[in-house]
Design a protein around this nucleic acid. Sequence first.
DNA 1: CGGGCTTTTGACGTCGATCAAATTCGGTGG
DNA 2: CCACCGAATTTGATCGACGTCAAAAGCCCG
Lengths: 262, 262
Amino acid sequence: MTPVDELDLVLQLPLFDGLEPESGRRLLGPSLHCEAQAGVNLFQQGERPEYLHVLIEGAVELRCVDPTGHEVVVEVVRPVDCFILAAVVTDAPYLMTARTLEHSRLLLIPAGHLREELYRQPALSLVLLGSLARHYRALVRQIKDLKLRTSAERVGAFLLCLALDQGGATTVELPYRKRVLADRMGMTPENLSRAFARLRECGVQNQGSHVVIEDLERLAEYCRMDTAIDRVEAALRVPAQQVLPDSSESVPPSRAQGTTDT
Amino acid sequence: MTPVDELDLVLQLPLFDGLEPESGRRLLGPSLHCEAQAGVNLFQQGERPEYLHVLIEGAVELRCVDPTGHEVVVEVVRPVDCFILAAVVTDAPYLMTARTLEHSRLLLIPAGHLREELYRQPALSLVLLGSLARHYRALVRQIKDLKLRTSAERVGAFLLCLALDQGGATTVELPYRKRVLADRMGMTPENLSRAFARLRECGVQNQGSHVVIEDLERLAEYCRMDTAIDRVEAALRVPAQQVLPDSSESVPPSRAQGTTDT
DNA sequence: CGGGCTTTTGACGTCGATCAAATTCGGTGG
DNA sequence: CCACCGAATTTGATCGACGTCAAAAGCCCG
């Protein structure tokens, strides 16, 4: 697949929904392809934004670090989505550091170019406004989660989301190794372990990365799910799916992958 | 001052910077004025967004509530700024409940009308994109604050922001009664009191709502301020200022009031 | 001067982090 | 196939930060 072909495919993705093919191509024209192994820092907090990052394949986490070296994971980005839009739009230093979790491929759109295109293309600001709005809401949920739930409840809610995403399956596979999962959920591995221990008491079996939920209702009650608000964040936590089709295939089913949440 | 005159004044504010006067007037045309006492709920989480809210005067807090009644304050909005943009743009249920902290005046822009204008006016989406980006960044800082700092450090950082906003004054007045302040900073009044007690040991005197900081440097070090990132959030915490000028005066100095952060 | 407050202080209890040690797991080389 | 190493995971003990409950000061005002 040539780069240009790929650009066209990228433009068909939900993220860029509503963009004219032509303006899309102009937007992506000066963009760079970038590929990185797992564990690579794409940029550091405090730096000036040079590119809007679009994640095409892989996974990236955004985290804040404080002077003592402690960290919080603020967001986990899944394809296809853009990140650090806020920094690029405001032209202010990154508040977070971005690191690849897996081997990833990205498109880097020069910040200056993006801002110019923003003036030229009404549709583009709409697209980005929508994306940013979803990210904003993801953060609101994150804050709610951190302050209002215990770690066991967070884990429970996470499992429930996995289960519900599979149409109510009572058995799910954890998408990452537990070490990584713990980080992602804002707790230490030790506490993740204890969280699973506590969940056993409300019907959650766990063998390695294999989890069986005896009673979805019971679990939902335990972790105080709020249907109006919590359920919506499911997509935030779904493991990656191969989103970019092979060149021989068409665009995959539209399971709301275009953005971090829905 | 007639309503129409006031609309024009509103449009001159930083929030609407870059908007043509005419399109601004069309945007605000069908908007409602709304005035509320302190302590009034403007809407509840879970409801569908009907209006984009623009706070003209007063103060509003956005909070999440969980089924057991516990709450987190997610944002405090100061004039002039809009809020719940993300919900309006995505047309998804509010994640938060909005409550006035003081007697407040608002402009309510019907959500449907806003979305139409969004298509008609490129400049508008740019304005809103900028506003949303700033709110997004405020939340990132909030998460960092909650996870990475102790309550004493949060209070210290808050005081430091107050001081620095006054050009490095070593004595500041707390903008609210402590009960309210505690809420705002995500802790109980008891713990706020203990936080002040701890800050005494690094040179912070406190008598009622009067605070003296002996050594700004020392305090900054104690609460691990990060110049590149923390200082920026100052505006987030500054007490309200009278932003709408009397009809006899011109627009006030541009101290970055147009948005929640800068 | 005496309610009815906010604010402070002290005594717990809970949650989550940390440190240390035990245990399990996955793959490796013999 | 099996013993073995290193990493991941679990478990236990302990600590610090915060929330809660209760009681003691302070304060504001009538």
